[in-house]
Computed example of a mutant assay.
Amino acid sequence: MIIRRKEKWKEIIEAQKQSGLTIKKYCTDNHICISSFYKQKALILEEENTFLPVVIDKGNDNIDFEIDHHHISCSKHNLKYLLENLL
């Protein structure tokens, strides 16, 4: 029962991403509680312990990666500072 529920939430979260709608709009249109959506998304991400592949080019001062279809570019210095302060 729990597995089916988790799989259903994974389908809902993926459908929202594919829809191109904001979470708020998708949840409203599909009669889904927004706070439940965020809670389930956080639980799934925590459980999956997702790692992001990052390629570092030593000849370039920037590090580029993508999260949920968003491109992020950050200098190595700023990324180091950010990570040190998060940990």
Rank of each mutant, 00 (worst) to 15 (best):
I2P: 00
S35D: 11
S73G: 09
K58E: 12
I34Q: 14
F51W: 07
C74W: 07
K58F: 08
F65S: 05
L82V: 10
E14Y: 06
H69I: 01
K76V: 10
N49V: 03
E7V: 04
I12R: 04
N78A: 00
K58W: 03
L83C: 02
C74S: 11
I3Q: 12
M1C: 04
G20A: 09
Q18D: 09
K17P: 05
Y26R: 07
F37R: 07
I44S: 07
V55F: 11
S73W: 02
V54T: 07
I23H: 02
E66H: 08
K80E: 10
N30V: 07
I34L: 13
H71N: 10
K58A: 05
K8R: 14
Q16W: 03
N60G: 00
I12V: 15
K6F: 00
K17N: 09
K25A: 14
L79Q: 03
G20D: 11
S19R: 01
Y26L: 04
N85R: 11
K80Y: 12
S35N: 12
M1H: 09
L45G: 11
D61I: 13
G59K: 13
H70W: 00
L45I: 02
H70D: 08
N30Q: 07
I44H: 06
K41E: 10
F37S: 04
R5M: 09
A42D: 13
Y81V: 13
I63N: 02
I67K: 03
I63P: 01
I44G: 00
S35Q: 12
K10I: 11
M1Y: 06
K17V: 05
K17Q: 10
K10L: 06
K76T: 09
I3C: 04
